[in-house]
């Protein structure tokens, strides 16, 4: 809701009643802003006082917020984070493609397409049902042990594949819900123009469906940013594994806090971007 004084565009001047109402609204707004600010400061002060006056605080500060340790561990943790980012980017692209393929398979129509639908459903059932960690172990340790010629042995490759397979199952369901949310009248209109099933999907249904599920997909992207670190169980050094190594030197946990801060630096801009995207779409379509 937009508050504000109406701008006179003609010979209108606010009546006495309107001037009094405007003055009241201004006073009320100022008062509630002041109350909110004071309350926030009070709550923060109480929490800060409680934490810093706790008996363990000096030791806690030394172990988790040691500035020198933070500076020392930053390069190693940042290098680990670079691996997280690369895994995330490559997997995100593969997940988007595979998820879309599975979603299209699951929404295929007609008795002829039954095997395609069944395959899609089986994929989702399998890879959404298996814990990601289990998948990582099975692929990461199992596949290289087959010692098949030509099969990659890189832990990073198998780890990335495990993440892609698992996330694609979730993303496929998000895409499917988007496709199914498009009203049948859109299909009817497109088909009545002579567009084929494939053309209707490509030019009419998917563009609308993808826009609708973007907020849900961004949720999965943020989740993926963090889960990209799970490849560490296969012996690859990501940000958290790097922090763990740094910590093991002197049992100072500051590197974990550094890793946490770096993850937040990644995910918070992503969250604001998602909000911005959703708002822009809402403005454009008027209804979403």
């Amino acid at each position: 809701m937009v508050h504000g004084v109406p701008v006179p565009t003609d010979d209108w001047t606010p009546s006495a009643i309107e001037r009094e109402r405007t003055a009241y609204r201004t006073r009320a707004t100022r008062r509630s802003a002041l109350v909110a600010a004071m309350a926030s400061v009070a709550v923060l002060a109480v929490v800060a006082a409680a934490v810093t006056s706790s008996p363990g605080w000096p030791a806690f500060r030394e172990t988790f917020f040691n500035w020198d340790k933070a500076v020392d561990s930053l390069p190693a943790v940042a290098q680990g984070l670079w691996l997280n980012i690369r895994v995330m980017l490559v997997c995100a692209v593969c997940i988007a493609v595979l998820g879309m393929v599975v979603a299209i398979m699951r929404t295929a129509r007609g008795p002829v397409m039954f095997p395609v639908r069944a395959l899609g459903t089986a994929y989702v059932d399998l890879f959404r049902g298996l814990p990601l960690l289990l998948l990582l172990f099975l692929l990461g340790f199992g596949m290289p042990s087959l010692r098949l010629a030509g099969l990659p042995t890189s832990a990073l490759f198998w780890g990335g594949l495990a993440i892609t397979l698992s996330y694609s199952a979730y993303v496929a369901e998000v895409f499917r819900s988007g496709i199914e949310s498009i009203h049948p009248s859109q299909w009817a209109a497109a088909r009545s123009l002579g567009l084929t099933y494939r053309q209707t999907l490509r030019h009419v249904v998917l563009p609308q469906a993808i826009r609708r599920v973007t907020p849900a997909l961004m949720n999965d992207v943020v989740s993926l940013q963090k889960d990209s670190g799970l490849v560490a169980v296969l012996g690859v050094v990501d940000a958290i594994r790097a922090a763990q190594i740094e910590t093991s030197v002197d049992y100072n946990f500051t590197p974990y806090v550094v890793a946490g801060a770096l993850f937040l630096l990644l995910t918070i801009p992503m969250a604001r971007f998602t909000d911005w995207l959703a708002r822009r779409q809402g403005l454009r379509s008027g209804v979403l």
């Binding site: 009248s185 859109q186 009545s192 009419v204």
Partner: peptide, 30 residues
């Protein structure tokens, strides 16, 4: 279907396309 025109009660325009793109979709794709 490409040789039969149909108009619906609820218009069924494509909301993600401009008015012109709605009209040119079939000429271009079909």
């Amino acid at each position: 279907r490409s040789r039969i025109g149909m108009v619906f009660q609820a218009y069924n325009l494509f909301p993600h396309l401009s008015v012109l793109d709605n009209v040119t979709l079939a000429p271009i794709r079909v």
